[in-house]
């Protein structure tokens, strides 16, 4: 078979000479038809190898597209080895071949419907570009020409086929972590207003006490009776508040606790004396 392939064109060449050397493949009687299964309607368009059809042919989900032509080598009907209908997705350039069944006379035909198409072509947004390729062994120049476009119509009632792109190694989209929002404060004016309101309760309290007759008249008497214990007792109460203040600002618990213990001991020891003096004043009817 191989020999015949290589010899036949060679013989042709010898026989026909230079004219045959420029032999080219082409086709005649080209037509594309779409048969709707439901209605049985047929839309048929003539094809020419010179100019592609202007309007795309639409192919519904139940329709069948039929392409038929007669392949010719220099005007004579002949069977080419390669007779393909190529459908190309225009965005990616992806192409699927559909071989035509060719008879000895060069009559060729192919039928295709949605189920014959690879999924990548089915989900194409743009019309598919259809080209016819006719070529064979030997010196005859092949034909590869766009002939028409096919618009794939998907049925609205049928869910469109899902296509997931295969994994390819490459850079991935960037991710930037979205941080939680920082805690928010009310306007400073409001905080300041309420802080001042709280501070204002202290003078209000003192004024209240004074208006009810509060005074410090016995201070000199108490200091006179028990000067040391009163000074240390009142001092230890102030010192305790100071310890708490230091704990709030800088000290840790382990530094604070022993100092609290020491201050508390002073409070208890001086307190017995100081409060004893207070009691003696009460017993004397002076409170």
């Amino acid at each position: 078979m191989r020999i015949s392939h290589s010899i036949a064109p060679a013989l042709l060449l010898l026989a026909a000479g230079a004219a045959q050397a420029a032999s080219v493949w082409g086709f005649d009687d080209g037509s594309v038809s779409v048969v709707a299964k439901k209605s049985g309607d047929t839309i048929k368009e003539k094809l020419s190898q010179k100019t592609p059809l202007l309007k795309p042919v639409s192919l519904g989900s139940t329709d069948t597209l039929k392409l038929s032509l007669t392949a010719k080598d220099n005007g004579k009907g002949k069977r080419p080895h390669q007779a393909f209908l190529l459908l190309q997705e225009q965005d990616s350039g992806l192409e699927a071949p559909f071989p035509l069944t060719v008879k000895e006379s060069g009559k060729a035909a192919v039928q295709l419907s949605h189920k014959d198409l690879p999924i990548q072509l089915l989900v194409a947004a743009k019309p598919l570009k259809a080209s016819v390729v006719l070529a064979s062994f030997g010196s005859a120049q092949g034909l590869s020409t766009p002939v028409f476009e096919v618009k794939i119509e998907t049925d609205a009632n049928v869910p469109s086929p899902a296509y997931e792109k295969p994994l390819r190694y490459g850079k991935k989209p960037e991710i930037h972590h979205i941080f939680r929002p920082d805690p928010k404060n009310p306007p400073k004016v409001i905080s300041l207003f309420f802080a001042l309101g709280v501070v204002a309760t202290l003078p209000a309290l003192l004024i209240g006490w004074i208006s009810l007759g509060g005074n410090l008249s016995h201070l000199s008497k108490a200091i006179g009776t028990a000067p040391l214990s009163h000074a240390t007792f009142l001092g230890s109460i102030v010192a305790m508040e100071f310890v708490f203040f230091m704990y709030y600002t800088s000290w840790n618990l382990f530094k604070t606790l022993p100092i609290i213990a020491a201050v508390a001991a002073v409070t208890v020891l001086s307190g017995t004396k100081a409060l004893g003096e207070v009691q003696s004043r009460r017993l004397a009817g002076e409170r």
Partner: peptide, 24 residues
């Protein structure tokens, strides 16, 4: 306001101690 509350409490406590012990 809360920190002010702390300060006022401390000052009020000291004032109360003094008043309680030395008020005639």
């Amino acid at each position: 306001p809360w920190i002010a509350g702390l300060g006022v409490t401390v000052a009020g406590w000291l004032a109360f101690c003094a008043l309680w012990m030395y008020s005639a």
